[in-house]
C-alpha cells in the first residue's frame, strides 16, 4: 500500500497532478451545472409571472445573442 502511494518516489509529483486536474474539472462541472439550474429556475419563474407569453418552452431566436 505504501509503495503504491510512493510511486517509486515520484508520488509527490503524480498525486498533485491528478488532484489538481480532477479538482479543476469538478469545479468547472459544478459551476456550469449550477449556473444552468439557476437560469432554468429563473426562466420558469418569469414565465409563470407572464403566462401570456408562454410558448411551450420555445426559445426566441430574435436578435439578442449571448
Amino acid at each position: 500500500m505504501e509503495t503504491f502511494f510512493a510511486m517509486g518516489g515520484y508520488g509527490v509529483y503524480i498525486w498533485p497532478a491528478y488532484a489538481v486536474s480532477l479538482g479543476l474539472l469538478l469545479v468547472l462541472a459544478w459551476q456550469s451545472w449550477r449556473r444552468m439550474r439557476q437560469g432554468q429556475r429563473l426562466l420558469e419563474k418569469l414565465e409563470a409571472q407572464n403566462p401570456r407569453r408562454r410558448r411551450g418552452g420555445h426559445v426566441t431566436t430574435s436578435g439578442d445573442v449571448g
Binding site: 462541472a29 418569469l46 409571472q49 407572464n50
Partner: peptide
C-alpha cells in the same frame, strides 16, 4: 466531459438570452 459541459453551457447561454427577451417584453408591457 468536454461535450457534457459544452452542452450545459450552451443551454445556459440560450436560457439567459430568453430571460433577457422576456424581461424586455415585460418592461414593454
Amino acid at each position: 466531459y468536454f461535450f457534457v459541459i459544452l452542452l450545459w453551457r450552451v443551454k445556459t447561454l440560450l436560457i439567459g438570452r430568453k430571460i433577457r427577451a422576456l424581461r424586455m417584453a415585460q418592461l414593454g408591457d
